[in-house]
Amino acid sequence: MAHRLRTVGLDFVETAPVRLVFAREVAASPEAVYRALAEDVGGWPQWFSAVSAARSTDGGAGRHIRLRGGTRFEETVIAAEPNEVYAYRVDVTNAPGLRALVEEWRLVRDFSGTRVQWTWAADGTAAFRLGLRLGRAGLGRAFRDAVTRLDHRLSPTAAP
Results as ranks from 00 to 15, higher is better:
P45C: 11
E84Q: 11
E75A: 09
E75W: 01
S52L: 04
Y86D: 08
T15Q: 14
A27Y: 03
A87W: 01
Y34F: 15
V77P: 07
G62L: 07
R55P: 02
R19W: 11
H64A: 07
A79I: 05
T15Y: 03
P30I: 00
T15H: 14
D40I: 05
S49H: 13
A54E: 04
V85P: 00
A53C: 04
A61C: 07
E31A: 14
R55G: 06
Q46F: 09
E74Q: 12
G70V: 07
E25M: 01
V33M: 02
W44F: 12
A16C: 13
T76D: 14
V26K: 02
R55C: 04
D58E: 15
T57P: 00
L67V: 02
V26Y: 00
R35K: 14
H64C: 04
H64I: 05
A16S: 13
R55K: 12
A36W: 03
E39P: 00
F22M: 08
R72A: 04
N83W: 08
D40H: 14
G59K: 11
P30T: 05
T76V: 10
V77Y: 10
I65G: 00
Q46E: 15
G70F: 10
Y34P: 01
R68S: 10
T15K: 15
E14R: 15
G60C: 12
L67S: 11
R55V: 07
A79Y: 07
V41A: 04
V33K: 01
T15F: 04
A32W: 02
A53M: 09
G60M: 12
P17M: 11
L67W: 05
E14S: 12
F22V: 00
A27P: 00
A23K: 11
P17K: 10
P17Y: 12
V18P: 01
G70D: 05
G60I: 06
E39F: 04
W44N: 09
A16E: 06
P17G: 15
A79G: 03
